[in-house]
Structure formats: structure tokens, C-alpha cells
């Protein structure tokens, strides 16, 4: 078990991608979250998963839903850079959806919320023991949906309906459209559109997930995967044995774990500072530190 101040505890870290072309095609990077949940579904490790899909009525607006088949999971592939309140369905999944073994994908803060809910299940009666697999993603910051509209339509001069993919990487916010045009916005512009809460967030790689994954640290088309908990280990080992993923040691890929560590350190150090600043904000009435 590796214990790292910034990357959390994990038993192994690898570069991986799905061996399923169908999954890879629509995924953000290596198709890890979709591939792992699809495997867990097929094996009965989970009987449904809370993932996000695009709200059919508004372009790129994420909306949580409960997928109970691999086909439904495929709707959920890819990243949408605004919040999907996946935890909002955590109770309902065990109620009208009738799930006993729930899988969930979420950001680091959602993993924190999930674990907190499992520890103190206020309003979550009979939910904690039904969480079977939590897949966390990497997250630097996030945008409210309104911000995405502003960034894409005003700064990017692109109609949101025409966008086929968004990405954050190499210091830029990328917008790909149907016609192939690519717009890049420097992250300097996007900063003020972030959610304020993200500026005090002290987790980059979903330290509390069973398995966490993200693109940073591995080449295009691959993902970095941290296997963290016993549960995560079991599922990952089974999925590997079943040939769901192709892996490489993280040491052998570029840019490798160093970049993940660097970004995690940057995020957390910067956010610790804003926490300190918030504590002194105003006169004698600092803002609350959510961690204490």
C-alpha cells in the first residue's frame, strides 16, 4: 500500500485502456470507468450504476441516471465539464430502482460525500451497505452549466449544440465541433467560471474511491488508474483476468506519475492557500473551512 500526501492511498497504479473498441470509441480516454462498470454489471458485482448522461433537452447538460445494462452505460461515456449531481440518485437507486449493489462514478468531492454518507447515513437509511463499487475520476475544477454556456458560446463563439467533445489538457480548454473546427481557450479565461467550491477542494485523484482514473499521466487514449481499496482490488483483478483492460506499468509511460503528482500538489497547495485566505476574509468573520 502506497501512502502519498497528494495521491492518497493506493495498492497499485497503472496505465490502462479498455480492450473493447466500442467502449474506447466514445470514451474520454482509456474507457476505464465505463469498462469497469460494464464488467462489474455483467459479473453481478453491481446491479446498476449511477452515471451521468446528457440531458436530452439541453446540449451538454449532464444529468445523473441509473444504468442497469452495459448498453445504458455506453450512453454515459465521456466527460462533460459541468457538474452532474450523481449523488442525488444514491438513495433512489436503492428505492424505486430496486438496486442492492450500486455502482457509482463521481468526482473526488462526490466520493467524499459518498463516504461521508456511508459513515453518517442521515437521510440515507439502508443505503451505506448497498454501495458496491465507487469509481472516482480526477478533477482539477469544475464548472456550473451556466459557465459552460458562457465559455463555449461567448468565448469560443461556438454553438453548444455543435460541440462533439470538450477537453482540458496542455494548459487549454479544447472545444471540438462537428465540422472539425477546434477552439482552444487559455485556462486563464476559464478560471473565473469555475465553481467557487472547487477553490478549497483538497483532492485531485479521488482518494476515497475504490478505483480512481483520469487521463493525466498517460498518453492519449490511455488512462491512469489507481486501485485503492480491497473492493477495488477485487474488481480490478477480476476485470484484468477477464481481459477487459490492457495495461502498462506507469513507470514506462510518458508523462507518468510525476505529472499527476505535480498537478495534485499544485491544486492542493493552491487550494490550501485559498482556504487560509478565506479564513481571514472580511473583518472578523472569515468564511468557514469546510474541512474542520
Amino acid at each position: 500500500m502506497v501512502q502519498d500526501n497528494f495521491l492518497g492511498n493506493y495498492t497499485s497504479c497503472v496505465a490502462a485502456r479498455s480492450t473493447n473498441r466500442g467502449i474506447l470509441a466514445g470514451s474520454q480516454d482509456g474507457g476505464i470507468a465505463t469498462g469497469l462498470l460494464a464488467f462489474a454489471l455483467e459479473q453481478g458485482i453491481i446491479d446498476g450504476a449511477i452515471v451521468s448522461m446528457v440531458d436530452p433537452s439541453e446540449p451538454w447538460k449532464p444529468m445523473p441516471f441509473v444504468a442497469t445494462s452495459p448498453e445504458e452505460l455506453y450512453f454515459a461515456r465521456g466527460t462533460r465539464y459541468s457538474l452532474s449531481p450523481n449523488l442525488a440518485l444514491i438513495k433512489e437507486a436503492t428505492r424505486s430502482y430496486g438496486l442492492d449493489k450500486v455502482g457509482i462514478v463521481g468526482t473526488p468531492c462526490q466520493m467524499q460525500g459518498l463516504r461521508k454518507g456511508q459513515l453518517y447515513p442521515i437521510g440515507l437509511r439502508d443505503v451505506p451497505d448497498k454501495i458496491a463499487l465507487a469509481v472516482g475520476i480526477f478533477c482539477m475544477e469544475n464548472f456550473p452549466y451556466q459557465s459552460i454556456i458562457q465559455l463555449v458560446e461567448d468565448h469560443g463563439n461556438t454553438k453548444l449544440e455543435n460541440v462533439v467533445k470538450m477537453d482540458i489538457g496542455k494548459g487549454k480548454f479544447w472545444i471540438y465541433t462537428e465540422r472539425g473546427a477546434v477552439v482552444q481557450l487559455p485556462l486563464k479565461i476559464t478560471h473565473k467560471y469555475e465553481q467557487p467550491g472547487c477553490h478549497v477542494c483538497l483532492d485531485y485523484v479521488s482518494n476515497l474511491a475504490d478505483v480512481s482514473t483520469g487521463s493525466v499521466g498517460t498518453p492519449d487514449g490511455w488512462s491512469t488508474v489507481f486501485v485503492r481499496s480491497k473492493k477495488g482490488n477485487d474488481v480490478w483483478a477480476k476485470a484484468m483476468a477477464a481481459g477487459c483492460f490492457e495495461t502498462k506499468p506507469i513507470e514506462e509511460v510518458k508523462p507518468g506519475l510525476d505529472l499527476v503528482t505535480k498537478l495534485a500538489t499544485e491544486k492542493i497547495t493552491k487550494n490550501r492557500k485559498s482556504l487560509e485566505e478565506r479564513a481571514k476574509f472580511g473583518i472578523g468573520k472569515g468564511l468557514r473551512n469546510p474541512y474542520i
Binding site: 446498476g48 442497469t68 433512489e92 436503492t94 428505492r95 424505486s96 430502482y97 430496486g98 438496486l99 437509511r125
Partner: peptide, 27 residues
């Protein structure tokens, strides 16, 4: 819990029916 949303103070019943039907699996 499944039909009422909660087995103690049920959340699912509302004026006009229920907030949500159940899934075939839940049924």
C-alpha cells in the same frame, strides 16, 4: 422502502399520486 421511497416517513406519495413509479427490477 421501494414502493414508498422510505419505510418510515414515506417520501414517494404526493398529492395526485406518487413522485415515481418503480422499475421492473424493483417490482
Amino acid at each position: 422502502e421501494i414502493s414508498g421511497g422510505e419505510c418510515i416517513h414515506p417520501s414517494n406519495p404526493r398529492i395526485g399520486g406518487l413522485y415515481t413509479n418503480v422499475s421492473p427490477r424493483a417490482k
